[in-house]
Amino acid sequence: MLDDDDELGPLMKPMLEKYGMDLTLAFAPSQAFALLEEESFDAMLLDMMLPELDGMSVCRSIRSSGKPYADIPIVALTARADLTDRIVALEGGIDDFVAKPVEMRELVARIGAVVRRLREDAQDEVASQTAVSAEPAVLHLSPAQMSAVFGPFTVNLTELEMRILRCLQDAQGNTLSRAEILDRIGHHTQSDPAMVDTIIYRVRHKFREQGLKTDFIKTLRGQGYSIKAAQAS
Rank of each mutant, 00 (worst) to 15 (best):
R86M: 12
D124L: 04
R80D: 08
R80Q: 12
P101D: 04
K13Q: 14
R221Y: 03
Q145Y: 08
T158K: 15
R86T: 01
S191A: 15
V138W: 06
A122C: 00
A79C: 02
S64Q: 15
Q231T: 10
D192R: 08
R86E: 01
V155I: 15
T24W: 03
P51R: 08
L77G: 07
L139T: 07
L46P: 07
T158V: 07
S128G: 03
A43H: 09
A28V: 12
R221T: 08
T24P: 00
E17T: 01
C59I: 07
L2F: 09
V114S: 10
M44D: 04
S57R: 13
P68E: 03
R105A: 08
V115M: 13
D5V: 05
I227C: 05
H140A: 09
S61I: 03
Q190R: 13
R86D: 02
Q123A: 14
D22Q: 11
E91N: 15
I185L: 11
V114A: 06
D82Y: 12
L165D: 05
G92A: 04
H187C: 12
G9S: 00
D6Q: 15
A28T: 15
L46N: 06
C59V: 04
S57H: 09
L83D: 10
S133N: 10
I111Q: 00
H187N: 10
K67E: 13
F150V: 11
D124R: 03
S233L: 08
M1T: 07
M1W: 05
A34F: 07
V138E: 09
R208E: 15
Q172N: 03
M195Y: 15
N156K: 03
P73S: 03
Y69C: 08
D82P: 11
R204T: 14
R202E: 13
L36E: 08
S233N: 05
R117D: 12
F97C: 07
L8R: 02
K228Q: 14
G186F: 09
D95E: 01
S147F: 01
I87L: 06
P152N: 11
T78E: 09
T130R: 12
D96C: 05
K18Q: 14
R221Q: 15
P10E: 05
D71C: 04
G20V: 06
A179M: 13
P14S: 10
V102Y: 01
M48C: 06
K206I: 02
L157Y: 03
N174V: 02
E7D: 09
H188Y: 11
D22S: 07
A171K: 05
D96G: 09
R208A: 13
F33D: 06
E106G: 07
D85T: 14
A32K: 01
M195V: 13
A28W: 08
G66E: 02
A137V: 01
R184S: 12
F150W: 15
P101A: 07
